[in-house]
């Protein structure tokens, strides 16, 4: 029982007037202390819902249908709301995708940061204030004393996001879930925040779950990567497995969509088609209708997770021993050689 966090076959649905939306359809992964898992994947694939389920913060008609979330061996799915309140913000904390929804618009920024410190760390107001200013400073907010007394709408988009990060880091959580924490930030402040997260991670040996669309950020922070599509993890591996040896055609499409530093006028590659309807998840491989490499079996039967190596798994029939030998598209193959080298001119010493 050495794992810090184990998620086993997690299924999450929403009851809506149109029926049951099966947002997460059996997700499993584990995480050691000090490890960072990045979750990438299509918009609507269930990344945020997965992380909300770990915190037991599902909105509206959402519910955990099946599965376990073991934190140091204890199943959070079985915990009461009252018990969860003691765990949230302390053992597990979360940076939400939309900073505006997690900040109280009528409360001063300073008080919002101090709240958790007073509640979970038993600090008095004076110490909490000192620590809050220090945290604002760490996330790169200039004039923190002045900013403490302002309200969220007086901050820029990226500054709000940094406040949310400061709040999440305040209590040195065992598990930090960060949902798109740096999307609204410029790259220099992003780099600064990523370094800060790594530093705190080293200090307290916390595990990080990092959800992002930015594959550059994934390459920078992740030890492991999970690629999600239609409520499932369809490929999982070390960061090197996923970037240098991707096996699932959806992962190929993702890597192929990024402009390289010297992309010119040609159209960017975009995965054709639209995401599946989670009210009626497709039979067979959910990605098949959009997959130019789809095999006949894909429309009938869902592929299991095939093992590529001890660290690397992917759910595609292309990995079946009887499947035809299909190579990733040329552009993706080039990128697998090392994206940084594709047409970089000078400027990189």
């Amino acid at each position: 029982m050495s794992k810090l966090l184990e998620v086993k076959d997690l299924k999450v649905s929403f009851d809506t007037y149109n029926g049951e939306v099966q947002a997460v359809r059996g997700v499993s992964f584990d995480l050691d202390k000090g490890e960072t898992l990045a979750i990438v994947g299509e918009s609507g694939s269930g990344k945020s819902v997965t992380s909300m389920a770990l915190m037991k913060l599902l909105a509206g008609q959402g519910f955990i249908k099946e599965g376990q979330v073991l934190l140091e061996g204890v199943d959070l799915v079985k915990k009461s709301e009252k018990e969860m309140q003691k765990i949230r913000g302390k053992d597990i904390s979360m940076v939400f995708q939309d900073p505006m929804t997690s900040l109280n618009p009528t409360m001063k920024i300073g008080n919002q940061i101090m709240e958790g410190l007073i509640k979970h760390q038993n600090m008095n107001r004076e110490n909490a204030k000192k620590r809050a200013i220090e945290l604002l400073n760490q996330v790169g907010i200039p004039q923190p004393e002045v900013r403490m007394n302002q309200y969220p709408h007086q901050f820029s988009g990226g500054m709000r996001q940094r406040v949310v990060i400061a709040i999440a880091l305040a209590c040195n959580p065992k598990v930090l879930i960060a949902d798109e924490p740096t999307t609204a930030l410029d790259v220099t402040i992003q780099a600064q925040i990523l370094e800060l997260m790594k530093e705190i991670q080293k200090e307290v040996d916390s595990a990080i779950i990092f959800i992002t669309h930015d594959l550059g950020v994934v390459a920078n922070v992740a030890d492991k990567v999970a690629v999600m599509y239609a409520g499932k993890i369809i490929e999982m591996g070390t960061v090197d497995d996923i970037f240098y040896n991707p096996k699932h055609p959806y992962t190929w499409g993702l890597l192929g969509s990024m402009p390289t530093p010297d992309s010119t006028d040609e159209e960017l590659y975009a995965i054709p088609g639209t995401p599946p309807n989670m009210l009626k998840p497709p039979v067979g491989d959910a990605f098949a209708p959009r997959n130019e490499f789809a095999l006949e079996i894909d429309t009938v039967m869902e592929p299991p997770m095939f093992k590529v190596s001890d660290t690397h798994y992917a759910a595609t029939w292309l990995l079946h021993p009887d499947a035809p030998n299909i190579e990733p598209p040329e552009t993706v193959k080039q990128r697998m050689q090392g994206f940084a080298n594709t047409g970089r001119k000078d400027g990189d010493k």
């Binding site: 220099t188 780099a191 930015d214 890597l255 530093p261 090392g338 994206f339 940084a340 080298n341």
Partner: peptide, 18 residues
Amino acid sequence: LLSAIPLPDPRYERERVR
């Protein structure tokens, strides 16, 4: 700013100098 652009290339990211 330009030196901080993250690229989807783990080896490059490990050695990047900002």
